[in-house]
Structure formats: C-alpha cells, structure tokens
C-alpha cells in the first residue's frame, strides 16, 4: 500500500521583476505548470541546470514561497500559504537541507541550540528533554554528544551538512527537501552523506525531494526522476525509464555531457586522440 505524501498539480511561479525608472516591469516565469507526486518513503529527484526553476520549486514545496497558481497537497491536505498562512502542524511536516553547508548554520549559534531551536519554537518540550532529543539526533547522524556545545565554524563541510540534516529531522517531518545537499562536498564526504540519507530514509520512512544537477548522484539515490528545463518538466518518470530511454532531446544532451569516469571511455578517448 502506498500513500502519497506530496502532490503538486500544475504549479506555476511567476516573478515580477521590478521595473526601474525607465524600464517597465516584466514577468519571469520561473516554473511553468509542473505536476508531480511522491509516495511515502520514496525519492523524487529533480534534475536541471542553473536557472531551470528547480530551486524555486524547492522553495514552494518547502512552503517558503507561495505558488502563483496550481495546487499543492502534503499528506493529502491542500496547502495554500498565500491564502491561509501556515499552521505549526504544516510547518513540521516539511523541512529542507540546503546546498551550502557554510551558509546554512548560524555562525553564532552552538550546535545544541541549532538542533533545539525547532523544538523550542514549535513545541512545549522542556529544556532537558530538548537536550536529550538533540543528543540522540546527533548520534543518529554520526556525530557525538561532545559536539553539542561547539560552534559551526569548528566543523568540516560534511559534518555541517550532517548537522543541517539533523536539524531538519528534529521535528519528525514526513517530507524532506534536499536542495543540492552534496554538491558542495568532497567526493568521499559526499558518499558518506548519501549513505546517511539512505539510512535515515529507511529508519524514519522519510520521503525525499532531491534537487541536483549531478546525474550520477541522482541515478544512485532516486526512485523517480524529473528533468526540468526553463521552468518546464521535460521528462518525468521512474529512474530506470529515464536513464535507459530518455525521450526529450535536452535530457539526451544532459546525459551526453556528463563526464564518464570508466576505463572504456578513457580508452576510446585516447584512441581517438592518437588517431587525430
């Protein structure tokens, strides 16, 4: 039995670029009617290059910005923050992890407070219980209680990303939006964080929306893949379908451009070079 956690119907987002004194204002269509749905415990990957609207979509799903048009359902409930505002309960259901591990933690906040803050704001959990929960979460993401009182600048990029993930999980969300969570990390650290994400998904039955431009990562982690190009979803299907048989020409270009690090393609390249 599968439960749909997230569903979007025809989501549109326009930006009005403020006209200056001598320029009329104009409208930019960042997302042009995108539909999708994700089942519980699954991962939807949204792939695209810069400016394709994937981060805008992420902000809409995370309920940071409202959509201009279209319907968004989370756990079966229709959400419209432009009209109804946002309840605490809704807030707890969706959380986000950002790309840049250096920008996403408040430099003046200790890790313990970073993790405790969501609980402090949204629940009546007493201080010592918050502390226990934060400690537990630290352990879950592979850090230790000794990190509780440290400041973000004392951590490496991978560790900070673990902390950001831990913070996102403090409220037991059902949906986690991951906006390029491993793009800024070194290869070895990237592998660790991907493993962690996979483990956490199994343990908490989390649903992921994974935004990325890196096809090899997407191929590894996704169940479904959506390729975006200039605000439109040009390709949407299960991972195997999309990778085995891309339909849209842009998807094909994208696949062809991804550098291949296998022996066969190196041999082919060297042979070609010799011939030239």
């Amino acid at each position: 039995m599968s439960v749909t956690v997230l569903e979007g119907k025809n989501i549109v987002r326009d930006y009005h670029v403020g006209g200056g004194l001598f320029r009329p204002s104009r409208t930019v269509h960042a997302v042009k009617g995108v539909s999708f749905s994700v089942d519980k415990g699954k991962t939807l990957a949204i792939v695209g290059e810069s400016g394709c609207g994937k981060s805008t979509l992420a902000r809409i799903i995370t309920l940071i910005d409202p959509a201009t048009a279209g319907e968004l359902f989370i756990d079966g409930n229709k959400v419209d923050i432009a009209r109804d505002g946002l309840t605490k309960e809704m807030r707890r259901k969706v959380q986000i992890v950002f790309q840049n591990p250096y920008g996403s933690l408040n430099p003046r906040q200790k890790i313990g407070d970073v993790l405790g803050e969501p609980l402090l704001i949204n629940t009546d959990t007493p201080a010592d219980e918050r502390r226990d929960l934060a400690m537990k979460m630290l352990k879950k993401v592979g850090l230790g209680p000794e990190h509780y009182n440290r400041y973000p600048h004392m951590f490496s990029g991978g560790q900070r990303q673990r902390i950001a993930i831990a913070r996102a999980l403090m409220l037991n969300p059902s949906l986690l939006v991951l906006d390029e969570p491993v793009s800024a990390l070194d290869l070895s650290v990237q592998a660790q964080v991907l493993n962690l994400l996979a483990d956490l998904q199994d343990e908490f039955e989390l649903t992921y929306v994974f935004i990325s431009h890196d096809l090899s990562v997407v191929r590894y982690i996704a169940d479904d893949v959506m390729v975006m190009y200039y605000g439109e979803a040009v390709e949407y299907g299960s991972r195997d379908e999309v990778f085995a048989d891309p339909k849209h020409s842009y998807t094909k270009t994208l696949f062809a451009a991804t550098p291949r690090a296998d022996v066969a393609s190196i041999k082919a390249r060297l042979a070609k070079k010799k011939a030239a």
């Binding site: 940071i64 605490k88 920008g103 704001i121």
Partner: peptide
C-alpha cells in the same frame, strides 16, 4: 537572505526571533 536565516524560518521562527 542567507540560508541559515531561511532555515530558521522553515523551523518556524517568528519575525521577532
């Protein structure tokens, strides 16, 4: 517009906070 501020917002922090 730094990400940590948006993160705090997503965590539900009020304007004053």
């Amino acid at each position: 517009n730094r990400e940590y501020v948006i993160s705090a917002k997503v965590a539900g922090a009020s304007h004053l906070r």
